[in-house]
Write a protein that binds this DNA or RNA. Structure first.
Lengths: 341, 341
DNA sequence: TTGTACGCGTTATCAG
DNA sequence: CTGATAACGCGTACAA
């Protein structure tokens, strides 16, 4: 029935008071007497008044809105992060606008601009695979709009960062394979300009070197870690001589893909070729053989990202205190890597 | 370096023209001469001007923002829908703010209010399991803010709706089981106030009755379809005499849970008990045995929802044309239901 | 304790 | 083709 929105002015008029009194009453300003506050409350309710946060944002220059950019929304790890962000943001009174780059630098640039234009109070980002430079985020820095990076991060912009300990994850995974008796361990890695993949690789190399081992020549591959990339990777790895006796994959998707491919081969997982993934995607514990992997606490990373961002928005922390927060990983030992002697 | 945002007034001042001219030039208003437009463009660029959509929203009463409420963000079906929504919205110049009800009516009410307060131009909703009434959305209707419902929908509010053909999905799934020789088919269903579960149940009953069969006494269970609910369900179903020879589950989660539970039982899937799920979650094709299921095009449903919503926002369609759009499902036959005679 | 007056950045209207 | 002005709804010095 209401064709037109009630405003604080309408309430004021109805009560023969001023709009500022209404404004104050509605936000529990202690200056207002309990009596008038209640009166205002009541008619606001009756008139179906709902605050206009757009007007409020314009006035206060705070939108109570945070933006998040991820490569793909419908990927378990990222949607878990988003879920954590939403949960924390909601409790703190922030809305979340979401966008996905589809791993495209171009789209990421557009999205960043759109978020800036809508005057979000802060932004949480995990970079696209294509993203090599970070100028598109400089506007946030210049406007003192807090940024938090997670997972796929950069050193080139000063901000809080949330990652898991990819180096130790890579090392632990590799050590586990070595402990299973594997000596010829290949690695399927992502693009190295993304620190997470660089660190997983370094962890892998560290574990090998500590055990006096070498990566097999041609046994370290770089790709975008899709299902198709996994198929191509195993095809290549099967041409190596000697054949690798284990593969450490930088994500679960390629591990899955490799396991499925090997079903149509004479080689058995884990006895001929052991496989370890990274991320603990939901499918990892369901496929046969179940996939040994490194767990990555997506939901918690999202919560932490939002907490840090909101703390910075509120001025509770500042640029002097930027850190890189490392979340714990855990080696989850399953069937794809365990050899019974 | 820029401590303060450049506005159209700053540009106007720098060029000794009026703010309205700048405003018009920047939005390609044909009234402005190409010469001045270019000049304005250039200095806008130089000054690092970025439009303030908050101010624009206040003035135009259009936020170019759509809201979406889903039960859980990190669930494959819903995150796929969200992904589709984002994709379409982005191309149409809309931002998306996301929120999750966690299947709680209380939170859903709050979220709806928050979306309303932030003056979104439209809302896409899939209801919480707890949601039995829909008054919390009436404010949108009263303010003529378009709504689109998907998956978990209601008849009580007039709006466009996107669903899959749950009835025919339920029937097809059940017919398939019957064709496999099953005669004693149980059903694990969700809460019936959600149409999707009611329709899947009706489809199941229709298939049975067409084949001259009855549901086994005590063989139709209702719960919230979680992993735990699946475990409880199979425990109950195993007490029935005669034992069901098949179970049609209203989602893949319970189907999965039942299959895992039966691994620790003397009964084999599919030979003793055949299992069919619903939704085609990613894990369904990976577990052993792979799960026969009904595919549900989440991404496409998201795209369609956004298209309809945006069309209505733009006034291209109106309340006279509300429909319930039924997306195609497909029976995906896998190992969990196929009996080799 | 309440009211007045103004501005946030943009755009619609009207005038020139 | 361009400019002046008001208004969107709210919040906040300042005044009373």
């Amino acid at each position: 029935m209401k064709r037109t929105e009630a405003t604080i002015h309408d309430i004021a008029r109805a009560l023969n008071i001023s709009a500022s009194t209404v404004s104050r009453a509605l936000k529990d300003n202690p200056l207002i007497s309990a009596a008038t506050r209640e009166k205002i409350r009541k008619t606001a309710e009756e008139m179906g008044y709902r605050p206009n946060v757009v007007a409020s944002s314009l006035r206060t220059k705070r939108s109570n809105m945070i933006g998040i950019i991820v490569p793909y929304i419908n990927r378990h790890f990222f949607s878990s992060v988003v879920s954590g962000v939403e949960e924390v943001a909601y409790k703190a009174g922030f809305a979340v606008t979401i966008s996905q780059s589809n791993d495209s630098y171009q789209k990421e640039v557009q999205l960043a601009r759109a978020l800036y234009d809508s005057r979000v109070d802060g932004v949480i980002v995990s970079f696209a695979m294509d993203t090599h430079n970070f100028r598109h985020l400089s506007m946030f820095a210049e406007s003192r709009i807090p940024l938090v990076f997670f997972d796929r991060i950069t050193d080139e912009i000063d901000a809080n960062r949330i990652v898991v300990d990819d180096f130790s994850g890579g090392r632990t995974a590799t050590e586990h394979l070595i402990a299973q008796g594997c000596r010829n361990i290949a690695h399927v890695s992502g693009p190295l300009h993304l620190q997470i993949y660089d660190n997983r690789l370094k962890g892998y190399l560290a574990a090998l070197s500590e055990a006096g081992l070498q990566p097999p020549p041609g046994g370290i591959l770089h790709n975008r870690l899709t299902r198709a990339d996994g198929e191509e990777a195993i095809r290549q790895l099967l041409t190596l001589k000697p054949l690798p006796d284990a593969i450490f994959c930088a994500n679960d998707t390629t591990a899955l893909s490799i396991i499925l491919s090997l079903r149509n081969s004479p080689y058995k997982v884990p006895d001929d070729i052991a496989v370890v993934g990274f991320s603990n995607e939901p499918f990892s514990g369901l496929i046969t053989p179940t996939i040994t992997t490194i767990s990555q606490p997506g939901y918690e990373m999202g919560c932490r990202s939002a907490e840090l961002l909101i703390a910075e928005i509120k001025g509770e922390i500042n640029a002097m205190q930027y850190q890189t927060y490392t979340m714990p990983t855990e080696l989850i030992i399953r069937e794809s890597s365990v050899r019974v002697p």
